[in-house]
Computed example of a mutant assay.
Amino acid sequence: MTVTQASAVVACPACGTRNRVPQAREGRVRCASCHADLPWLVSADDATFDEAVARSSLPVLVDVWAPWCGPCRAIAPVVEQLATENAGRLKVVKLNADESPGVAARHQVTGIPTLLFYAGGRETSRTVGAAPAQQLRDWVGTSLQAVSQR
């Protein structure tokens, strides 16, 4: 999966068609060919964070990371897999803390990696540090379940 600032190019898990996925829009993103839900993984920065996260109609997992951070690089494949596993139910936004110090400070991120879970434009939970893949899956599952019970 290729992540860029304004959009990402994602191969459809169902048919393999490459699709451009926008940073922000209403609803879910779907394959232009087979209409399957696509993994929604994009990057944001200080200027685009609110549009990408706070205004999303889907719950959002925000990965606050930095390129020099070994634990951040260790969980990156898990975060990407969570986007694929939860296609149509979750949007994943990557936020480079070095390039977006305003958002990191606003959300009082003092350690990385930090994963923030948003629903309805508000942070509902967070976890700090590199956790095993299953623990991250469980945390995301619990967070999604809490949102669906509202």
Rank of each mutant, 00 (worst) to 15 (best):
E51G: 11
R30M: 15
V79L: 08
H35C: 10
C72E: 00
W40A: 01
S43H: 04
V53D: 00
D37R: 15
D46S: 13
E85N: 09
A54N: 15
A44L: 02
A36D: 04
P77S: 07
R55C: 14
V78A: 03
C34A: 12
L41G: 06
P67D: 13
A32H: 10
A83C: 08
A74W: 09
V29A: 04
F49Y: 02
V29P: 03
T48K: 15
Q81V: 07
C72N: 01
W65M: 00
A66L: 00
A32W: 13
A47M: 11
W40R: 07
S33F: 14
W68I: 03
G70S: 13
G27K: 00
S33D: 14
A54H: 15
V60N: 04
P39R: 06
A54Y: 13
W68N: 08
A76H: 11
A74Y: 12
V64D: 01
D45I: 05
L61G: 04
D63Q: 07
S33M: 15
R30A: 13
L61D: 01
P71V: 06
I75P: 03
P39A: 05
C72T: 00
V79D: 03
N86F: 02
E80C: 06
V60H: 09
L38R: 10
L58V: 11
A24N: 10
A24Q: 11
D37I: 10
E80Q: 10
I75H: 07
A74P: 15
W68P: 02
P39M: 02
D45E: 06
R30G: 14
G70T: 12
A52I: 09
H35M: 11
V60G: 05
P77K: 04
A52F: 14
